[in-house]
């Protein structure tokens, strides 16, 4: 098995990791019952009861899966 000959320097490690970038997701804005919500497009949403516990996943008014 090929093995590195030298220890990678702290500088090289940090230079590599400086290229890791987070990208913001594209959200869609919807107004439900007067409240503005942001959600991922084309993806099922979790339906919760008044206490905030997840009940099931829903997409376009159709139950998709259990949460």
């Amino acid at each position: 098995m090929a093995v590195p000959k030298r220890k990678m320097s702290r500088s090289n490690t940090r230079a590599r990791r400086s290229q890791w970038k987070a990208t913001a997701p594209n959200l869609v804005k919807t107004v439900e019952n007067g409240r503005v919500t942001y959600s991922l497009p084309h993806q099922a949403k979790v339906v919760t009861d008044s206490a905030g516990t997840a009940l099931f996943l829903e997409y376009k008014g159709r139950k998709v899966a259990d949460a």
Binding site: L40, H42, Q43, A44, L57, Y59, R62, V64, A65
Partner: peptide, 11 residues
Amino acid sequence: DGGYTRITKIG
């Protein structure tokens, strides 16, 4: 006439 399945993304 076709379209017998439905795919829904769930995260």
